[in-house]
């Protein structure tokens, strides 16, 4: 009885022309100790292809465990090296609880709205 994780990728550009390109990774299924490597591999692949702004859409996740959060942190480190960042979109109530308990909500921006999330990647001058 293995868990599954589907990852779909889309790229977005905010309304404002100054806004940078953001790659959205939409996750579906479980992000746990048996699937976190899939996220890590996919993220590494797109970061090596010059992606630095990643928005992880968590709305399709029905479970996130500590291994999943570890993958998000690793991805965040890789984007930071390129001057970008990882932000989170629409975690379920249960995911939100996990983020809060482990203190990830203090170090990752969490959005409920896709457009606002995309716009937030605008470089600060």
């Amino acid at each position: 009885m293995g868990s599954t994780l589907n990852i779909s990728i889309s790229t977005h550009q905010g309304d404002d022309k100054l806004t940078e390109t953001v790659t959205v990774l939409s996750l579906k299924g479980e992000l746990d100790s048996s699937t976190y490597k899939d996220l890590q591999a996919k993220a590494e692949e797109i970061i090596s292809e010059d992606t630095k702004n990643i928005l992880i859409d968590m709305s399709g996740l029905n479970f996130i465990g500590s291994a999943g959060l570890r993958a998000i942190h690793t991805t965040s480190n890789s984007t930071k090296e390129k001057g970008g960042s990882v932000k989170l979109l629409k975690p379920s109530e249960a995911s939100q609880r996990v983020l809060k308990t482990l203190g990830f909500d203090q170090f990752f921006e969490v959005f409920q709205d896709l457009d606002k999330a995309i716009d937030s990647f605008k470089p600060v001058h």
Binding site: H73, T101, L102, G103, F104, Q106, F107
Partner: peptide, 13 residues
């Protein structure tokens, strides 16, 4: 309940 984040990830915690 928790009084801070997990240990080992966030140096500014």
């Amino acid at each position: 309940p928790t009084t801070g984040p997990v240990v080992g990830l966030f140096d500014q915690a």
